[in-house]
Design a protein around this nucleic acid. Structure first.
Lengths: 153, 153
DNA sequence: ATAACTGCAAAACGTTTGCGTGTAT
DNA sequence: ATACACGCAAACGTTTTGCAGTTAT
């Protein structure tokens, strides 16, 4: 969060901001690109990335480097928690009880100067869960390959 | 976690496993590569990546896609929490009170089928904290540009 | 004989950057 | 006039993949 440095709220930045705010779940850079292009067909992906970074630096959005692959972007600035679908990678919000006490729960930080926390859950989003149920009802299908544990954090 | 599929504990895999277990903090792929090469100078980076993925799939290690940039690898399989240094990217363990209750704390998962959690903290590791103190004692230096909040999760 | 494993180099992926031009102040 | 912003295309760092040769079973 860089306090002293001015920048213009240009059409592309407005569109990026609106796109992220209006999205159903937290979009990736190229999903933002798609959304912005519907309003401004000539924007480039480079500009989208440049502005996602700038908006993050100025505290107007948050960048979630949550999982594997792409980052996700979030227009909600308050501290909150996320779920990431293990199957499709989609990221949504979760509400948890008393998340503010999480930092206090640290018993041994090994000398780290702790600034914040990040709590995210993994699981299956409604769509992927029902799709999985359709293709393997009750798990009666051919063995193995469960992977539900998710060793990739 | 794929249960039924055999694989050989080859020298390179053994070395990767040992390297991760013996490392001071959770290493990245090329740190693992470095370590393995000390024992087996002819291994390729491709093999290291292939085997990190295989060992993860078989539940022998965990892949931490924690932050920006590189992934980190962890030989401790039990659920536990991490800290990532905002300055150098290093990842270590933290102990927190009753982490097992975290999943129970979810009030509204929005229809997700939640399998696990990932709690990590951000902050400054001892080295970076003391370096920062040396270069800006008490923060009396030139203004602005703190960034300590860290909008990049 | 077969399946698993490897080194090597090329490709893929998501992201960043340099440059020349355009636009707001 | 100046600083900021952009499109475009090239470059980047990390990870994955295809292929041809090697090794264990």
């Amino acid at each position: 969060m860089i306090p002293h440095e001015q920048f213009r709220m240009t059409p592309s930045r407005r569109a990026i901001l609106d796109g992220i705010s209006g999205a159903a779940c937290h979009p990736t850079a190229d999903e933002v690109y798609e959304m912005v292009r519907r309003a401004l067909p000539r924007v480039s992906l480079g500009t989208v990335y440049r502005n996602l970074e700038l908006l993050t630096r100025h505290g107007l959005i948050r960048t979630l480097a949550d999982g594997r692959g792409q980052r996700h972007y979030d227009a909600v600035l308050e501290d909150h928690c996320h779920v990431r679908c293990e199957a499709c990678g989609r990221v949504d919000d979760v509400r948890v009880t008393s998340p503010g006490q999480l930092v206090d729960a640290v018993e041994d930080g090994g000398g780290y100067d702790i600034h914040g926390y990040r709590l995210s859950f993994t699981g299956l989003c409604p769509d992927c869960a029902s799709e999985r149920e359709r293709s393997a009802p009750g798990r009666q299908l051919e063995g193995g390959d469960d992977e539900s544990q998710g060793n990739e954090d």
